[in-house]
Design a protein around this nucleic acid. Structure first.
Lengths: 354, 354
DNA sequence: CTGAAAGCGCTTACAG
DNA sequence: CTGAAAGCGCTTACAG
């Protein structure tokens, strides 16, 4: 063991115990110690000697060195738009848990809603030699993803597709969920239903838009384009869109906000204006389970299956990494169902009219 | 470049471009390429040759290999109780941003509110050879932390102290914040003020408890032990404690919930029971800024300076890593002020009585 | 089962 | 400025 007069230690340098030290103390070769460390069989006497050496020295394998040799770091990179979005954190938690079971750890990177950072962080993940990547695309550009592909690193996409790359993807049935939500409002008697969407070219927003239209058509409702508002899916933009709907001359009797941020923005405005839900307005939110429970009255929301998204993505990357199914296997697309969770925020329009 | 008939590539293995390839293509030694990669001066002609080789080959430095040699991975581990707690994610975001400026990346580990995992994740961080660790302790045990210390890896603690280790620590002035919150209720005329705390031995809970007592004493209030409820700082325990206060024969006219989860739990119950805030009850929450804004009427809360906590922690670890101040420097303790953000949930008791 | 040797991709004194 | 060589800590055929 490094003596306390070791100049390296005195300087505060890390004086790592290496496999060499273990071998020396155990009186064996490093090859044998390595074999033991990796679960191989060694003679009982040797096993004891090694275990003792490890304990006395406090040896811990250096996975950086191991990774250099094995060319596997047993690490999966997770790249998301923002770590401050609860939608992402729940997914990350599920991914981590699932991967840990298989002996993989994760490196989480967020790009802070910045397209340039998305590319840089992908770069960092690759430099760190992650074995695979699970990515929730932010910019929608293929370029950062292509870097991983070029390097032969498997990528699993979650939440949305990206044009220009064909990869395993875990999606949610956004269209159907939006259709259900809007249908329930129509069935409650609403005829003028506003919707706050995201950017026009965003995959999830497009699907939710389609679902809205489908519900209207099914019930023979004429679609008023004034009721369809695009936003940036952030709080300020969501607020503007929601306000625009409220302030319409012929304002909607119900509004559907289609992601967490726009739902939150709506809550702020409703609170500020002192609107009575559902008397003044019916409302369905998205992705905001905890907010939905606190809100008075309890909000109806569309809930995405966050746990399952994470677990599925982890499963898919593990399959790619184990080579079962393997490199050659075609890209798979998993579409998960979500859930409409009923609260009391969607009053019946007939009751109101009565 | 690896030809497309390369068997490794055919198998889907990663055929990394290495510094050797760059050197060969550029017609130089790997030492020179390495020098260039690390910002050293090379002849202009050589620089051009190297840059060209890098571009054509798509070379990316292998930081795993570099780390093995330099004994610095330029990575800081962040160990937190749960990635699903918004209090943590905001801090993480701040840490990441700050460290990125200095060229460090972060590996975030959460222990999922599991003491055993806290120890294992610390182990994983050390195996990954992180240069330093920022930790929000969960179990309060010194054992996991000691592992890092033994290995000479600097650790910065945030949010709470841990007995048995002396380390740089970033804290919030919990006592004072709680004192302010309770004082404001007393000044509004409340005499029976309930408080939902966390576990008795938890650092932050103890401080908030002390602040409560201090406010009472300052205003000459007799403390009724029935009004002080300990919980596990989770939602179910928080609900139970809050309900117990509500159902007291002589129930409090105001309640202070002292972390995010117990505040959320209170919101659930208030919503379920249809309590009118502040007519039926005055209420001050904690750590729940977004919830506070949605709540009707806007909640008064104690807000911790999450951004600053993260930035300060990052700053401290960078100083330890740069050796400025250095290894020998004594442990520092930074106590940050928080903020009482006023809403409308704390009505005046006099008004009610009138 | 065990050990000597080569090598993963890089950096770093040290000569030249 | 440049290059040959050693070595970071590990694993992995290959002999023995």
């Amino acid at each position: 063991m490094a003596s306390s007069s070791d100049p390296a230690r005195a300087r505060g340098d890390r004086v790592a115990v290496t496999i060499k030290d273990v071998a020396r103390v155990a009186g064996l070769s490093i090859a044998t110690v390595s074999k033991y460390m990796n679960g191989g069989h060694v003679l009982d006497d040797n096993r004891v000697a090694i275990e003792q050496a490890i304990t006395t020295l406090g040896y811990r394998v250096n996975v950086v060195a191991r990774g250099l040799k094995t060319r596997r770091t047993m690490t999966v990179g997770v790249l998301i738009p923002s770590i401050e979005q609860i939608f992402s954190t729940e997914i990350i938690a599920a991914i981590e848990k699932q991967l840990a079971k298989a002996g993989f750890s994760t490196i989480v990177c967020d790009c802070q809603l910045d397209a340039e950072l998305e590319s840089r962080k992908m770069e960092i993940l690759l430099e760190k030699q992650v074995d695979g990547i699970i990515m929730m695309p932010f910019s929608g550009l293929a370029e950062p993803i292509q870097k991983a592909i070029d390097q032969g690193v498997p990528v699993i996409l979650i939440d949305r597709k990206v044009e220009g790359v064909i990869l395993d993807t875990v999606l949610v049935d956004n269209e159907n969920l939006a259709r259900q939500a809007v249908s329930s409002l129509i069935q409650a008697g609403h005829r003028r239903i506003g919707i706050v969407l995201g950017p026009k070219d965003l995959y999830t927003s497009r699907k939710r838009h389609t679902g809205y239209l489908a519900a209207c058509h099914e019930h023979g409702l004429v679609v008023d384009p004034d009721l369809i508002r695009h936003s940036d899916y952030q709080i300020p933009g969501g607020s503007a869109a929601f306000l625009a709907l409220l302030d319409l001359p012929d304002s909607p009797t119900a509004i559907f906000t289609t992601n967490y941020e726009t739902t939150f923005a709506a809550g702020l405005i409703i609170n500020e204006r002192g609107l009575n839900i559902p008397l003044d307005l019916s409302w369905i939110g998205f992705d905001s389970l905890s907010m939905a429970q606190i809100f008075k009255p309890r909000l109806t929301i569309v809930a995405q299956p966050v746990r399952q998204i994470g677990e599925t993505a982890a499963q898919l990357i593990l399959e790619r990494l184990s080579g079962a199914g393997g490199f050659a296997c075609e890209a798979r697309e998993v579409i998960l169902p979500g859930e409409l969770i009923a609260g009391l925020s969607t009053g019946s329009i007939r009751t109101i009219a009565d």
